[in-house]
Design a binder for these strands. Structure first.
Lengths: 334, 334
DNA sequence: CTGTTAGCGCATTCAC
DNA sequence: GTGAATGCGCTAACAG
């Protein structure tokens, strides 16, 4: 029922080829013919069928976004930016959550190929299992990794320098006189936290401080309990804490409350990731804010450049610095 | 370079037609032929080309999700659920943010048609401007509205009963003895707040209380100032406040701080939308929690049913009830 | 400058 | 039960 190029051509009294040339501005068409085609197209309400176009040209102009969880604030905001920037360039954004499972990542990549998607922006589910991503790239799909760098594996990456993030958070605390810092993280090998922990730990040791590593697990309640236990131990009490992600921040604050301690007066706290409510906590949280929008913007632009072939140089590896925002949860060691 | 049905047929020594029948289980194929085809397909690593399939069959199996802002927590979580549920059923989720602008909504709908997307899940940008959605539906696209009901306009809708949400929040406060309630909202005609305000206002009046309406605008700082001003007015001081969305909650808390008042002791507060940090505020926030996951799940299922033609009855209009979660920010009026 | 022709990969009708 | 042939809507190579 929709009107096709054929219809437009007929209405304008030209051949399909001429109609196509007029509509897509290529080859040469006489001014008169072009005008008639355009008019006919407008009159009939013609819109090009992207599916047919895609089948013929081999380009669906669809970019896939594959984060661990599109519901998480960090990824959601990136999706927002991606969708805006890509749309302007005529692309559509398809999303799925990988649930941080490599298996799902693989199967989604399969279906991408079947759908002839030319680009993938992915937050790799795993640090080491990425052959499927490399294979995808070798087969001609543009791949950009975010959140976790795969540049060493030959894949363009836009990330936050998590090592520096950890180091900067620690440096702030050290400058305030703290020497024993608690680093709180969920597990040893998930996501960006290992780098953060390393960065913080090395900064602390370099300053002659001591590191209290608290591995609290991925469950909020359990993490709270574990943190309580560790903080209650009288030996080597930390005077400042760095929870390495949002969940750990929650657990840490909950634990501090349970122990009837006070943030800032009893314990300084630097959290990761800013959030509007962080300002409303009492005291407002000092945080390391990741440049989320920047990452989204860069990933989208890079993807577009790769797809349009405007950029063919070697692997891009952009690491953005997180920003320290000092608010009320950190104070001089007393 | 990818392997096509043609290749599989050749390798199996049958015609394309037979290969297609074997692969898609239709028509009749002899057991032997079927086996050879399946084996050939596996050997060659054949995957069906969805683009060609879509062009031929007219079904791209792609559902579009069009919220105001995919970066907002509410919509992001819905996207997560949608993506999971739709994928299981073999669909792909495409997203874009409408920025709450009807114009953008329209243009994205245009491009959907060009891409032959059979379904749209939309958070309508505007209450009254929805002819483009109706037209889309009339042209055969399945449309499901969330967040704002368009059931009266003939479009399936899965929403929260915002009127009841407002009324329930007010009822809670009234039960605690409050009689003068401040209703805080950004503007008169945006999104779901008008219904919430109406619900609350009517409940208050029905109980013989008095309503203090505070329209604070959409900018955080300005809103904070305005709320301060209103609360500072000595006439008819509210003893409890209901900020109608997340931004208003922030502004309200900020204002209360500025005035050196205390939540719970000086003013009770019921916020809308739960958030993990809401529990960590001091006091923890009493909230009206929207059944986000439920909405996502329902929208996805309904969409699938419409697309598969399993359901052809009249317009669906599901209104979920928000849940009151009593925590520490509300207390008996003193 | 313009028309004719041939597919892109697949599903399906129609003969056999 | 199977194959040959057609066309979804569009683009592009090739003639003219």
């Amino acid at each position: 029922m929709p009107v096709t190029l054929q219809d437009v051509a007929a209405a304008a009294g030209v051949s399909q080829a001429t109609a196509a040339r007029a509509l897509n501005n290529y080859g040469s068409v006489s001014a008169g013919a072009k005008e008639r085609v355009l008019k006919a197209a407008a009159d009939l309400g013609y819109e090009t069928n992207h599916v047919a176009q895609a089948l013929r040209s081999g380009n669906t102009r669809t970019v896939n976004f594959l984060p661990g969880n599109i519901g998480a604030p960090f990824f959601a905001r990136i999706a927002h930016i991606l969708s805006g920037t890509l749309e302007e360039a005529g692309y559509v954004l398809a999303v799925s959550s990988s649930y941080e499972q490599v298996e799902r990542e693989r199967s989604i990549i399969e279906s991408m190929r079947a759908r002839m998607s030319p680009g993938l922006i992915v937050a790799p589910a795993h640090r080491d299992l990425h052959e499927h991503l490399q294979r995808l790239q070798q087969r001609g799909t543009a791949v950009v990794a975010i959140d976790r760098s795969l540049a060493e594996r030959g894949i363009d990456s836009i990330t936050v320098d998590n090592y520096a993030l950890g180091a900067d958070a620690a440096a702030h605390l050290i400058a305030l006189g703290h020497r024993t810092l608690g680093l709180i993280y969920d597990s040893d090998d998930i996501g960006s936290t290992p780098d953060r922990v390393r960065g913080a730990a090395e900064a602390i040791r370099a300053a002659g401080g001591t590191v209290v590593a608290i591995q609290a697990g991925t469950d909020l309640e359990m993490a709270t309990t574990r943190i309580c236990e560790r903080l209650a131990l009288s030996s080597s009490e930390p005077t400042a804490l760095i929870p390495m992600d949002a969940l750990m921040t929650e657990a840490t604050i909950a634990a501090i409350r349970q122990l009837d301690l006070r943030i800032r007066t009893d314990l300084s706290l630097v959290a990761v990731d800013d959030h509007s409510l962080a300002r409303l906590l009492d005291p407002p949280l000092t945080v390391m804010a990741q440049p989320v929008d920047q990452i989204g913007e860069d990933a989208a632009r890079l993807m577009i450049q790769r797809l349009e072939g405007e950029r063919t140089d070697e692997v891009v590896d952009l690491r953005h610095r997180a920003e320290l925002i000092v608010r009320g949860s950190t104070a001089l060691r007393n």
